[in-house]
Each structure stands twice: as structure tokens, then as C-alpha cells.
């Protein structure tokens, strides 16, 4: 087995799934648009500088399509050019969760009928992270994007511990509340120090001897399932994730492990 099956993809006619290029005016022309600001005033030399930078990016036939003076010695450019690279869809591996993603009522009904008790969830922004927007969107009763948060789900006992929670405090809460699932929110800045914090929590839960019975999930604007895998988490949800997606994944995983 080498390449995954790409025949099932609903691609436009003529597209080679093993060499996909950007589309501009015609298939495989590789046409892309890039924009940037230069710290020089707008002048003929700055336009030429922008065009040369496009060439150094690997764009064939770079053309400055738009330029504007931003004042204070800065200028802005939009370039068109032809990208020479292609990607093989068959070689791309993106982890994904297999949650059924059903509705609020269906998730609650499934937990009640299959598990027969509420799912205990503990969530927090850990370490030095004070950005609670993500964890609040998923957990708070008011929810996000027209959906209720986990606190509103009758079959979830959701505890949001807030921001800047040390890993050992979160671990203590997990043990004391006998949590089924843990949600950790991290923005990940400051030279990726938050990734170290996430990795430490995964190892602490393992060392405490409770990893196998915990569904461990991380989330944040730069978090993906691949990041989660790297750090020892079961899943990682990024920006735009809705509460029902997390609820569905948690329900499926907890039921799979404990039902």
C-alpha cells in the first residue's frame, strides 16, 4: 500500500490528483496572487523590488498588478505569478476524527441511552495562557455560532476551570472529579512554550496512571489533530470548531471506552 485511493475524489475533469496546481484562468496554469508591504516609499524602484521578490518566491512571470503608497515610508503590492510547484493528493495524510457530529438532542439521547450517566468533562486554559475565548466557546452555556456549549448539555457535567491553570491543578481536578474527558485550550505563542505545557500534561496524566480512561483533547487556533497526535492527545480541534463537534467526539470516545 502506498497511495491512498484518490479515484473517489470529486475532481473537475482533467485534474491530475497526483499533481495539483493552483488554478487561475486555465487548468494547471499555476496562477497565484500574493500581497505584501515593503518598508520603502512607493517609487519605480520599489515596484521593481516587489517584482523581483516575486521571482525569488519561485513565481514565473511575476507581475505587479497593484501598488499603493501607505505613507510613513511604506508601500503595498499585489502580484500575480505562476507557481511552478504541484502537490500529490495521494501523499497527503491529514488526521481526522470520526465523530458522528449529530445534533444537541441526538448527542444527549445517545449518552443517556448507551452510557446511562452524564459525561464528566473538565476544561481549562493551562500554564500561562489567559486566552479563554476558545474554551468558553466550547464549554460555556451560551455557546458559539448558534450552538449551545457543553454546560448546556444535560448529559454532560462540564467544569470550566478558566485560565492560567497549572497542569498539576488541572490534574488534581481530573482525579478528584473522576473526569471522563479533559479539554485543554492553548493559543500557543511565545516560541511554542505552550506546546511544552501540553506535552507535559499528557505525560503527567500517563504517569498518574489514568490516561487510558481519559479522553484527552486540546484546542486552539493553531491546534490540529496532527499536533494532538504529536503531543499524545486523542484529538485537537482548531479555529471554527463548534461545540457539537467536540460533544459528539467526546460522546463517541467515552462510550467506546466505557459502555
Amino acid at each position: 500500500m502506498k497511495r491512498k485511493d484518490v479515484a473517489a475524489l470529486a475532481l473537475p475533469e482533467g485534474v491530475n490528483p497526483h499533481a495539483v496546481r493552483p488554478y487561475g484562468d486555465a487548468l494547471d496554469d499555476g496562477l497565484v496572487q500574493v500581497s505584501f508591504t515593503l518598508p520603502v516609499p512607493l517609487c519605480p524602484e520599489s515596484v521593481e523590488a516587489a517584482r523581483r521578490l516575486g521571482g525569488q518566491m519561485g513565481l514565473k512571470e511575476p507581475t505587479v498588478y497593484h501598488q499603493a503608497d501607505l505613507g510613513h515610508g511604506f508601500s503595498f503590492y499585489i502580484l500575480y505569478g505562476k507557481l511552478q510547484h504541484a502537490v500529490d493528493f495521494g501523499r497527503i495524510v491529514v488526521p481526522r476524527v470520526s465523530e458522528t457530529h449529530v445534533s444537541f438532542d441526538e448527542i444527549n439521547a445517545r449518552v443517556q441511552s448507551v452510557l446511562g450517566r452524564r459525561i464528566r468533562v473538565v476544561g481549562a486554559c493551562t500554564g500561562s495562557d489567559a486566552h479563554t475565548v476558545g474554551i468558553d466557546a466550547i464549554m460555556n452555556m451560551k455557546g458559539y455560532d448558534g450552538e449551545y456549549g457543553l454546560e448546556r448539555y444535560p448529559q454532560f457535567d462540564a467544569r470550566n476551570l478558566g485560565s492560567q491553570v497549572p497542569n498539576e491543578v488541572l490534574l488534581r481536578q481530573i482525579v478528584e472529579l473522576d473526569a471522563d474527558a479533559v479539554l485543554v485550550s492553548q493559543v500557543v505563542t511565545q516560541r511554542d512554550v505552550h506546546l511544552d505545557n501540553l506535552a507535559e500534561l499528557a505525560d503527567m496524566i500517563e504517569a498518574q496512571g489514568i490516561r487510558e480512561r481519559i479522553v484527552l483533547v486540546c484546542g486552539g487556533p493553531r491546534i490540529t489533530h496532527e499536533v494532538a497526535l504529536e503531543l499524545g492527545y486523542d484529538a485537537g480541534f482548531g479555529a471554527g470548531t463548534r461545540p457539537s463537534q467536540v460533544a459528539s467526539f467526546l460522546a463517541d470516545e467515552v462510550i467506546r471506552r466505557k459502555a
Binding site: 500500500m1 502506498k2 497511495r3 501523499r91 495524510v93 488526521p95 489533530h225 497526535l229
Partner: peptide, 23 residues
């Protein structure tokens, strides 16, 4: 199993653990 599609080596699965992951 999902990571096998990224392999350039020829491989043959010998053991399935029954344990799942996002891949």
C-alpha cells in the same frame, strides 16, 4: 493505518491491534 499512505516504502500489514487513533 492512515499513515501508511504517506509511505514511499512497500509495506505489508501483519498485526492489527484494534486500537484506534485519529489516523
Amino acid at each position: 493505518e492512515g499513515a501508511l499512505s504517506a509511505a514511499t516504502a512497500d509495506v505489508a500489514i501483519g498485526v492489527r491491534t484494534g486500537r484506534s487513533s485519529v489516523l
